[in-house]
Design a protein around this nucleic acid. Structure first.
Length: 248
DNA sequence: CGGATTTGACCGGCGC
DNA sequence: GCGCCGGTCAAATCCG
């Protein structure tokens, strides 16, 4: 049973350069996008990116009824190691519509959302340099392996959902093939790795259960779909249709 | 029989 | 440089 579902993604420069306004898109279809207003203490680090969350209408309306603040898990990258620090934001309803306030927790360090474009550009430059350095004829298997490995370093845009659910794999309209499972340190539940089954679509997702609350499923998406969902019975009614599939 | 899943091996990045 | 750890690969296995 799906209880609640919220999402977050990093809005990166590529989007901002094309569109000076806050970008909106719908995921899942018919969900409501709300811009986050960051509340950064004076003098704090300026590395916070512009963020947008996607709140399904069911969640927003339920929240309106109950008046209870809804928690969103923000998993921010603390350093290059894959340690992530979790933060909580609250949804509050101010004036005409729902608004989000984003607070740094007292113990949290800097908001360091990995700059995906920088990383992509860096690895692209590396690739260009290595390929322009000499002839590509007769590339050895070792070299191919290295090239493959360097490509693997490219970080796609990512966001995660924290969902209370009995099932691990939520139906998001896309078809996924499991390609790995790993027991992550300090957790009793394995992490599963999935790849989109569509040809030429390199979107991946990770699914794991929260260590301290096994009822919660953390689904992390990485990359953009280059196609529509495999079963698209409802997405034709989605608002912001021109921006649907901007990321997905 | 073909596609999906499982699972141990392997690899690369990073901290020490 | 070494060891740890997360992520991926690929052969084996499962399943419809």
């Amino acid at each position: 049973m799906l209880n609640q579902q919220v999402g977050l993604f990093e809005e990166h420069q590529e989007m901002m350069s094309n569109n000076t306004q806050m970008g909106f898109f719908s995921f899942p279809p018919n969900s409501l996008s709300i811009p986050i207003t960051p509340q950064i203490p004076h003098g704090s680090h300026q590395s916070l990116k512009t963020l947008t969350t996607i709140i399904p209408p069911s969640l927003v309306s339920a929240d309106s009824r109950s008046n209870n603040p809804t928690e969103i898990l923000l998993s921010s990258k603390q350093n290059s190691r894959s340690d992530h620090q979790d933060h909580i934001v609250n949804i509050s309803h101010l004036g005409s519509g729902p608004q989000l306030s984003l607070h740094r927790s007292a113990t949290a360090n800097l908001w360091e959302w990995g700059d995906v474009n920088e990383e992509c550009m860096m690895s692209n430059n590396k690739r260009m340099r290595s390929s322009s350095g000499g002839s590509d004829l007769g590339v050895s298997a070792m070299k191919m392996k290295k090239m493959k490995a360097s490509r693997r370093k490219v970080r796609e845009p990512r966001f995660c959902f924290k969902t209370m659910s009995d099932v691990d794999v939520l139906d998001d309209g896309y078809k996924w093939r499991k390609y790995g499972q790993k027991v992550v340190k300090n957790t009793q539940h394995p992490r599963s790795y999935y790849r989109c089954t569509q040809d030429n679509c390199r979107v991946k997702k990770r699914v794991e259960r929260l260590a301290d609350d096994p009822r919660m499923v953390i689904t992390t998406y990485e990359g953009r779909h280059v196609h529509s969902p495999s079963h698209d019975e409802e997405d034709s009614h989605a608002p912001n249709s021109q921006l649907d599939n901007f990321f997905w």
